[in-house]
Design a protein around this nucleic acid. Structure first.
Lengths: 169, 169
DNA sequence: GTATATAGTTAGTCTATCGAATTATTTGAG
DNA sequence: CTCAAATAATTCGATAGACTAACTATATAC
């Protein structure tokens, strides 16, 4: 077999393998990061979203994270117990609750040593200008190919918990 | 933050956002895929690894998936209960157990409609030759920047469950 | 003003995960 | 050869995250 001239099929596999490595690396680091911040990945994710948005309702958190409102309630309970966030009733609509950061939450997030992101950012910023441009365009292209519905995303590299998908047993 | 920003973002942020979109898309689809195959994401992942390797010991599965052996035992129990895999004692070392696919397991995997991967593969194969080459090189570059230890990966686009990381409470 | 819709919480159940203890088997040191 | 240490797997008990369904409180609409 001519080792050269990779057929399209080989390239597809190569791209999938690279993608899979990207996914696994971020998964693995998400655990370590959460551990380092003294909480679980799911809790950290809530904290990140609340921080990013400058406060959010459980409803909004549930949508953003694609989990049920009940799950958000449980996660927020734990973050409240740890003093990371507070619940504040809305004035306009008293059914709504706003989840907001506490000073402790802010500083915990601030000091979470995001090793993966730091390493990545450092490496990325060491690249030549044209290389950066090419990487961004490639990543966006792949994201478009995967993410048809264009989800709202933020520049924070953490994965969330996957739900157990409650399937028979 | 709204999707469209007037000011062009920093390129590092753009790349992180694209990465995050990739992660989220795969997470979301991992659930659907597992559901469609009639099992949970963690169970599906075990099945994929067993299939790929043509059988594996619980020890090997635990290493490959970065979970404890106890967890693997539990997952294999469920797959056995569903007739997807079998346990076979090793002849050489009778402490070892080999987990192997059943016909049902094979066919279930075969027929799992991996919408995400199919869509991605289709899109990828529609690209011009040079574009494919560029994408592969970009993805591998990113994978290297994230995954210092070069994990063993396969061309299967599924994310696993993140462990709860058993941190205080 | 009552009916309906919406936001959030509570209750009950399931899966995934862990660490520690247990069992069976292999290996190695005398 | 024998017995201690190491190794593979399982069992046990506990915790976290997730879901659905039911419930409470508030808002809106007719």
């Amino acid at each position: 077999m001519p080792a050269m001239t990779a057929k399209p099929r080989d390239r597809t596999d190569e791209s999938l393998i690279a993608l899979r490595r990207i996914l696994r690396a971020t998964e693995l680091y998400a655990r370590d990061l959460a551990q380092a911040a003294g909480m679980t990945p799911a809790q950290l994710r809530v904290l990140q979203v609340v921080d990013e948005k400058g406060g959010a309702t459980p409803k909004a958190l549930a949508n953003q994270m694609s989990v049920s409102q009940a799950t958000v309630t449980a996660l927020v309970d734990k973050l409240v117990a740890r003093g990371m966030v507070e619940r504040r009733s809305s004035e306009q609509d008293r059914r709504q609750i706003n989840v907001v950061m506490t000073a402790l939450g802010e500083s915990t997030l601030e000091h979470a040593p995001d090793a993966l992101q730091q390493r990545y950012v450092r490496a990325f910023e060491d690249l030549a200008d044209w290389e950066q441009a090419q990487l961004v365009s490639s990543l966006e292209r792949v994201a478009d190919m995967l993410d048809a519905k264009r989800l709202d995303a933020s520049p924070v590299l953490t994965t969330g918990e996957l739900p157990s998908a409650n399937v028979s047993e």
